[in-house]
Each structure stands twice: as structure tokens, then as C-alpha cells.
Amino acid sequence: MEKKRAVVSVIGKDQIGIIANVTTILSNHKINILDISQTILQGFFTMMMIVDMTGANLEDLQKEMDELAEKLNLKINIQLEDIFQAMHRI
């Protein structure tokens, strides 16, 4: 199967349980996290993850993340990694 990697970005007001909630959804979908980076900038939580999407259903995942984003008032985006490669690397 073709390897498919995606960037998951989470941005919003810092609060308890963001990482726990997001990673629980990922693990329920059997999605492996390859890399993770997180900072808090002026009270704003930002997290970037690179995940292995091979075999996962992007649409279902997106739906669950949307629900979580709404509940915790966050912005969660899942974008296939190639677009970042295309834009920033020659």
C-alpha cells in the first residue's frame, strides 16, 4: 500500500486534555504519530503532528476531529503532507 502521511495541526486556547483527546482519536483510527511538536504562544496552544495515514479513512477522521474541535473550541486541520513538500521544498 502507498504510504500516506498527513500533517495534523491543532490551534486554539490552551486547556487541559487537548493532546489526550486528539491522540485518542488518532489511536482509535490506528494512526501512528511519526513526529510531534507543540508550543504555547501568548496563551495559544499550537501543535503540529506528522502522522501515518496509510489505511486510515480521512473522511471519518476529519469528522471526528471536527466534532472535537467544536467541543473544545479549537481549529484542527488534517492535510496530506505532500502539499507542504510541494510548497516549501524544491
Binding site: S37, T46, M48, E81, F84, Q85, H88
Partner: peptide, 13 residues
């Protein structure tokens, strides 16, 4: 990471 944090942020922004 193969893509840096700043690059990801830039695209998202």
C-alpha cells in the same frame, strides 16, 4: 521533521 514547524504554520496561515 522533514517539514519544519514554521513551514507548516506558513501554509496554514
Amino acid at each position: 521533521m522533514s517539514i519544519t514547524y514554521n513551514e507548516m504554520m506558513e501554509t496554514i496561515r
